[in-house]
């Protein structure tokens, strides 16, 4: 799916370009809402970074580093990780597409879940007891080395089960 990846990357790169450009374009900018995606965090020293291991839908492990304060969704966007449809509402707690699954001990260390996040999680495919939304988890040094699994979409599961819709 190389071209699909390319298109997605292109979209993401464009997205970041655009969010940078909006500052310069005051009126008529196509962005209607405030982007919650952070853009660059290069100023922080690398030893301050938090390592996160994502397991994508193919079971592949992707290790990236993010800055404390960034959300896991920010990290996916900043690192151009190709998780289909991830973060559709752009981190505004209006969808469940940045659903991630954690090991129980990690889940416990992620802190309290608000009712509003639980409400959106209830609509997520493949909901587990240790599910969270990536947009609601901010990186801290104590989360260094965590593993976050991107769940399969329902369609994938269904497809492998009976091959029909």
């Amino acid at each position: 799916m190389a071209l699909v990846t390319a298109l997605r990357r292109l979209a993401l790169v464009r997205l970041r370009e655009c969010s940078r450009r909006t500052a310069a374009v005051t009126s008529g900018a196509w962005l209607t809402g405030q982007r919650s995606f952070t853009t660059g965090t290069q100023s922080l020293r690398s030893d301050n970074k938090v390592t996160v291991n994502f397991i994508n839908r193919d079971g592949e492990k992707i290790t990236v580093k993010g800055s404390p304060g960034d959300s896991l969704l920010d990290l996916v966007i900043n690192e151009d990780l190709d998780f289909d449809g991830f973060g559709a509402c752009e981190g505004t707690l209006a969808c469940s597409t940045c659903h991630l699954i954690f090991d129980e001990d990690v889940y416990k260390s992620l802190g309290r879940v608000t009712d509003e996040e639980m409400d959106m999680l209830d609509l997520a495919y493949g909901l587990t007891d240790t599910s969270r939304l990536g947009c609601q988890i901010c990186l801290t040094k104590s989360l260094d080395g965590i593993v976050a699994r991107v769940p399969e979409s329902v369609a994938d599961i269904r497809q492998s089960k009976d091959g029909s819709s």
Partner: peptide
Amino acid sequence: DHPEVKNVINTFTLTARNSR
């Protein structure tokens, strides 16, 4: 009163602006 849901438009716009 659900403007957040409409954020998907941003991604659609990127798709539509692409020469493809």
